[in-house]
Amino acid sequence: MTTHHHRPESEIALRVKAIESLLVEKGIVDPAALDTIIEHYEHQVGPHVGAQIVAKAWVDPDFKRRLLADGTGAIAELGLTGFSSEHMIVVANTATVHNLIVCTLCSCYPWAILGLPPTWYKSLAYRSRAVIEPRSVLAEFGLVLPDTVEVCVWDSNADLRYLVLPERPDGAEGLSEEALAALVTRNAMIGTAKVEPPTSPTPIAA
């Protein structure tokens, strides 16, 4: 009988396992606490939370006003605050202002609102280039902004966390709040994309 060899686990996976078993054996970490944290980020929080906030701001002008004046308070109204989103600032994109979020010192990110950050957000390239050449970075994401638009970069270097309120796309007038939320992407809430208008289903026959 042939023995099947599985591909060996990556070095980082092995290292994490080794550290975890050491911490558990020494009684420093309770595996149940780890499972709770992993389950939370795998199944409960993610960009859908931020999308819900954005969609509400699009349909409710009073909520939008509160959200921009006091992000923390307005998000708390929806019960959507949490770890690493304790102090929230929401910045609105308009026809003349485009906002972009970065953390040059590490990878600070509104975890309770957007989930865990994407790998590129944590990369040295993004963290260093987003501040000095944001327009080139945005162009690489496929977003070319005219000179008439002011680019504002927000470095989350302290304890405040940022969320971009993207512009509501044209062609989304009749949509429900839930359908609007489905249009909102993670990158649009970091500022590396715009929210695209809804696409009509392709007709089967002309």
């Binding site: 420093i28 606490a33 780890l34 499972d35 944290i37 939370h40 949490g82 102090h87």
Partner: peptide, 22 residues
């Protein structure tokens, strides 16, 4: 504290966060 965090404490921390404001 060097106390081991319980699952309940982890859940509370995730939901309530940790304020740095004074």
């Amino acid at each position: 504290s060097n106390q081991c965090m319980t699952a309940a404490a982890a859940k509370a921390l995730l939901q309530q966060g940790l304020s740095c404001q004074v």
